[in-house]
Write a protein that binds this DNA or RNA. Structure first.
Lengths: 127, 127
DNA sequence: CGGTTATCTGAATAGTCACTCAAGCAGCGT
DNA sequence: ACGCTGCTTGAGTGACTATTCAGATAACCG
């Protein structure tokens, strides 16, 4: 594997003055480890909130004082009731909402994770 | 529009005892307003972090002490360099990374928004 | 200037995803 | 039991999206 990653090598040379292949690979390995340690957790939470319908549902759940049932959410998003159900299931899977059964109704509520994530973008957006 | 939203009406009747159409629509309007006031801001930020490549790049930028150039990031994600460039552009557009030009290199750095969002899911994930 | 370097951009494609439709299921009332 | 209600689930399809390839750009160096 002689002379691998030429660009990166040149960049390190430009920065530090000199650089051998081992230096290159070591720097990469360090970063790789750091990023992996941080984990890739939460990708699905982000993906869930990155869709308009699910985002709006989460906003609604967050804005509501108590919890809401599907028949309350349905009129507020302009997709079919089936789509609402799908979206809510995704939110629960992503840890952004919780479900409670009561008779024939299912009540949804936003989780702390959802609240905190929304708070971050709201706060940062105003800045 | 007599007798609209029958399910919702029944639900409110079950809860409060009685309910007229106006009550139904008013409750919906309130929620709608609340959710809209909160805004739909940040959807693109969430969407950006919801993709594996972009998420990983953000993690790398966040894990790095200073800022990183493309030639450092490229070896750490297994997509083409072009895809890395696309992804980084998306991150900048979403406000999750900033770009700095220096000679022939472009250095990327994660923004506060990115840091805060990642912090939330990391913290919540450990709980 | 011409050549090389590091990165970007646009078009095309492959893959994923969100929606709708139709059917299904559990809980309640009769 | 039966039907009705509120919601869910699965299959299918159209729309979007992430990636790649090829060509472009801008900065540096001779």
């Amino acid at each position: 594997m002689t002379e691998s990653r030429p660009r990166l090598r040149r960049r390190i040379e430009a920065e530090v003055g000199e650089c051998c292949d081992a230096d290159v690979e070591q720097r990469l390995a360090e970063l790789d480890e750091l990023a992996d340690a941080a984990g890739d957790g939460g990708v699905d939470a982000f993906a869930a909130l990155g869709n308009d319908t699910r985002h709006r549902l989460t906003r609604l759940l967050s804005a509501a004082e108590g919890d809401l049932c599907v028949c309350e959410l349905d009129p507020l998003v302009d997709v079919s009731e089936s789509a609402v159900s799908h979206a809510l299931a995704d939110l629960v899977d992503a840890g952004l909402a919780s479900r409670r059964k009561e008779g024939n109704w299912r009540y949804y509520r936003s989780t702390d994770l959802a609240e905190d994530l929304l708070a971050v973008v709201d706060q940062e957006g105003d800045a």
